[in-house]
C-alpha cells in the first residue's frame, strides 16, 4: 500500500528563538532550520512499515518555501521513495495547508497518511485533524503504537488519563506522538542516493486551491520574564521560605 508522509521545515528545536524588536514576529534570519521532530517520527514509522513489507511506496510531501526541499531530501535519505513540494509561502495557516494536502491526497490516493501531531513553531496541533475532515477519513491522533492489518489500522493513542486504542478503516490519517519510535539517522550513502530520487514541485494554483487568510497576526511579544530567584543553602531554609515567605505550603 502507498503511504503519504508530511514534513514541515521548522526552526531547530534546540535554538532559543528571538522575537523581532518591532514585535512583528519571531526572527528567523540565519537561524538553523530542520525537520519538525514529530515529522521525523512520521517518516520513521512509514519506513518501518516498508521494511515490514506493508508499505510499498512512501511519498513525502511538504508545503512551504523552496528551501523546504532540504527537509524533503532528508526524508528521502531516511527511506522515502519520492517527494512533492507544494511551493507556497503566503497564508500558511493550518487550514490552507490541510486544503493543499487534501488535493495531494486526492491525486495520490494513499491508504495511510502519517503526520506529526504538531509543529514546534506554531504549536497548533491541527493540520492532521483538518486533513482528515476534508478527506472524510478517520483519524488517530497522538499515536504511540500503529499496526496495520488488511483493511484497517489499529492505533494506541496517548490521552490525558493514559492510553486508548482505536481501530480505523483505511484510508486513514495517523498523527505521531513522541513515543511512537526513535527516528534513525540518515547514512552518508543514503544522503547521496537521496539526491537522485524524484522531487516534484507544484504550486497551489496547479492544485486548484485558492488560499485565503482567516487570521491576522497583530503582534508577537517575548513572554514575561520571571524575576530572579534565590538560592537556599539547606532543605530547612527551603521549607521555611515556602511556609513563611511564599506561603504556598
Amino acid at each position: 500500500m502507498k503511504v503519504l508522509v508530511t514534513v514541515k521545515r521548522v526552526i531547530d528545536y534546540n535554538v532559543k528563538i528571538r522575537v523581532k524588536p518591532d514585535g512583528s514576529d519571531v526572527d528567523l534570519t540565519n537561524v538553523k532550520m530542520a525537520v519538525n521532530p514529530f515529522c521525523e517520527i512520521a517518516v520513521e514509522e512509514a519506513v518501518r512499515l516498508k521494511e515490514k513489507g506493508i508499505a510499498s511506496e512512501i511519498v513525502v510531501v511538504s508545503v512551504g518555501a523552496s528551501e523546504a526541499q532540504e527537509q524533503l531530501r532528508t526524508a528521502l535519505a531516511l527511506g522515502a521513495d519520492r517527494a512533492i513540494l507544494v511551493e507556497s509561502t503566503a497564508n500558511t495557516e493550518s487550514l490552507n495547508v490541510a486544503k493543499l494536502l487534501a488535493k495531494v491526497v486526492e491525486q495520490e490516493q494513499p491508504s495511510l497518511v502519517i503526520m506529526g501531531k504538531q509543529a514546534i513553531d506554531s504549536d497548533n496541533n491541527q493540520t492532521g485533524q483538518m486533513l482528515a475532515a476534508l478527506c472524510d477519513m478517520p483519524q488517530a491522533t497522538f499515536a504511540s503504537e500503529v499496526s496495520v492489518a488488511d483493511n484497517s489500522v489499529t492505533v494506541t493513542r496517548e490521552i490525558d488519563g493514559g492510553l486508548q486504542t482505536l481501530s480505523l478503516q483505511l484510508p486513514a490519517i495517523v498523527t505521531t506522538d513522541l513515543r511512537l519510535n526513535e527516528p534513525r539517522y540518515a547514512s552518508l550513502p543514503n544522503i547521496m542516493k537521496a539526491k537522485r530520487k524524484p522531487l516534484a514541485t507544484v504550486t497551489p494554483d496547479e492544485l486548484g486551491v485558492t488560499l485565503s487568510a482567516h487570521t491576522q497576526l497583530l503582534g508577537v511579544n517575548p513572554p514575561s520574564q520571571r524575576s530572579a530567584g534565590v538560592k537556599v543553602k539547606s532543605v530547612a531554609e527551603l521549607v521555611d521560605k515556602l511556609k513563611n515567605e511564599a506561603k504556598v505550603i
Partner: peptide
Amino acid sequence: ATTTGKNFMPRVAALLDVVQLSD
C-alpha cells in the same frame, strides 16, 4: 486544549471552513 479537545476541534474547524485558534 486537552487531548479530547485537541483531537476533535480542528475537525470541527475544517468542516466549518474556519481556522482554529489553539491553546
